[in-house]
Amino acid sequence: MSRPPFPPFTEETARVKVQAAEDAWNTRDPEKVALAYTEDTVWRNRDEHLIGRAAVIDFLRRKWARELDYALRKELWAVLGNRIAVRFQYESRDPSGQWWRSYGNEQWEFDESGLMRRREASINDVRIAESERRIFGARSEEERGVDVLPIF
């Protein structure tokens, strides 16, 4: 199995990879998302450490059961060889109806077939009112390729 574009990445191919990841995560389909990772992928997500695609699927099922109406934006931060760094924001509501904006950074490392073998994520959450939301579903065609993430 392979996932183009392949490393070593240029800025252009890294942007393609980042947009593909954003698109996949916005489907909220754990099985689809997990296909971008190696069978033995290693993750750090907040305080969880995961190994393997099956663990990723389980994690994503739990995540999207508690992060309802999840909508994500990712932006390229840096690229070097087979590594990409991104910053991201997503918004979701918890089962009680409270909205959250989550800010974070990820470091990705890919194998030669374009699958992600390592993902490290640091994430902070901020309570927001529904009226403060600014991410509504998948990115529109007009937004593609445009950095749209204000810091606050």
Rank of each mutant, 00 (worst) to 15 (best):
A78D: 15
F136C: 08
G81P: 04
F88V: 04
F59C: 01
A54S: 12
W25E: 04
W99K: 07
Q89T: 11
K74E: 04
A34K: 11
V42T: 13
N26K: 06
A121L: 10
D69K: 03
R101I: 08
E132I: 12
T27W: 02
L50D: 04
M116W: 09
R46A: 12
Y103T: 10
G114D: 08
V33K: 02
K74L: 14
L60F: 05
R61W: 05
A85Q: 13
A54M: 02
E75G: 00
E120H: 09
S92I: 00
A24S: 05
G104D: 09
N82C: 06
T38F: 06
S122D: 12
A85S: 14
D29S: 05
Q98N: 10
T38M: 13
E112F: 00
R134C: 09
G137C: 07
R53K: 11
P95C: 12
A20R: 02
E67W: 01
N26R: 00
D23K: 01
I84N: 08
V56D: 04
L76T: 08
L72K: 01
D23A: 07
S122W: 13
K74T: 02
G52Y: 01
R44T: 11
G137K: 04
G97D: 10
L72M: 02
D69V: 01
Y70E: 01
R44P: 00
